[in-house]
């Protein structure tokens, strides 16, 4: 009965990612898409918060959005998995609901 949370805004621009992280429960998944992928970069200000959350949630980033912004897969914070559009669909289908943080 868990939730897929999507975040599509840069955490440097809006509190969407922070608010998302504050509202997830054990077993939920978080998928960073569009501008939110910039928060996944290793060494960035949000990398630690994302790593910390991995104890209870799985965290994903949408690969095409990462590539579009010139961020290499090896440069994202540890433990964050890459998915393509098909993986996005599988994640959504595998959860009871999708909650978008805009």
């Amino acid at each position: 009965m868990s939730t897929l949370h999507t975040v599509n805004k840069s955490p440097f621009e809006r509190p969407s990612l922070k608010t998302c992280l504050d509202h997830v429960v054990q077993g939920d998944a978080i998928l960073l898409i569009e501008d939110a992928v910039v928060g996944a970069r290793k060494g960035g200000a949000f990398a630690e918060a994302l790593s910390h959350k991995q104890a209870s949630c799985s965290i994903y980033v949408l690969a095409p959005d990462l590539a579009a912004r010139g961020i290499k897969a090896e440069d994202i914070a540890e433990g964050i998995a890459l998915v393509d559009y098909g993986g996005f669909v599988d994640l959504a289908a595998g959860k009871a609901r999708v909650c978008a943080w805009l």
Partner: peptide, 18 residues
């Protein structure tokens, strides 16, 4: 409070965000 809000999200079938 925040924990109750979190629980509310996980109790609904459809979430519409604005």
């Amino acid at each position: 409070d925040r924990s109750e809000m979190t629980k509310l999200i996980s109790e609904h079938d459809v979430i519409l965000s604005f």
